[in-house]
Design a protein around this nucleic acid. Structure first.
Lengths: 122, 122
DNA sequence: GCCCCTTGGTTACTATCGGGAAGTAACCAC
DNA sequence: GTGGTTACTTCCCGATAGTAACCAAGGGGC
């Protein structure tokens, strides 16, 4: 619809949009944002709540989110170190479409798995 | 919210969901689905309407979408060959959340770019 | 002091992915 | 048989994702 059209209208042929879509719309970014829906969380809490993510990937994902202004990072000068991550206002605005997509995925997992099975046999 | 929770509840610790999210939620899949909003399209039409995608990536993306039952592929025995791609009903149900995310990205491109500039300088 | 623990990373390395160019198969018009 | 179109496939290589191991700064027990 109009979104797709405006994607073409941009001067760079949508390159910027594609680059940003590529970063926003990936497994880890989506899961981190969805997890931060719970509020302020520490690095380790995020690591525990997102099964399967490695420390490195969590670090990189958080850095990108921070750079893009979707997540704020607060370091407390304590021992053991304490770093808090929280969604910014922009980050919270991503929550709705992100959860919509995640919800769609959850709803359609059985259907997709069935389709894959059928495809494999054919 | 409940989506994130049910993601954890699954027996495999959300591995299946993550794998599916990873495939649904990437640049090319999203753009192909959004482009097929226009209706039935041929391979070449898709290639032209999605600037920046390579033939290889378009082929792979379409194969995955077909395998997952989101896109139907119809080969016409004509010369020159004609292959039509169309969203299935499941595919069309993805349209709404996909366009919502794409819309979010388009709306926030300037903000994100500004944030990146500020981050680079700091 | 000495050792181990926790937290929040970083480093080094490997595997997989994506892009670009070139090749292929099928058929037609000239 | 030469060139053209369409829808792919194959190959190479650089970039990116992911895994495992390591590190620094204390705190607490002994």
């Amino acid at each position: 619809m109009k979104y797709v059209h405006s994607c073409m209208i941009r001067g760079d042929g949508g390159r910027t949009l594609r680059a940003i879509l590529d970063q926003i719309c990936n497994k880890w970014t989506l899961l981190v944002v969805a997890t931060l829906d719970a509020g302020t969380l520490r690095f380790k809490e995020l690591h525990q709540r997102i099964p399967g993510i490695s420390q490195r990937m969590l670090t990189l994902t958080l850095r990108n989110l921070e750079r893009d202004g979707l997540v704020s990072r607060t370091v407390h000068a304590e021992v053991p170190p304490r770093v808090d991550y929280e969604l910014t206002e922009t980050g919270r605005s991503l929550l709705e479409p992100a959860l919509a997509l995640a919800g769609w995925a959850i709803e359609h997992v059985p259907q997709i798995e069935a389709s894959r099975e059928a495809y494999k046999k054919a």
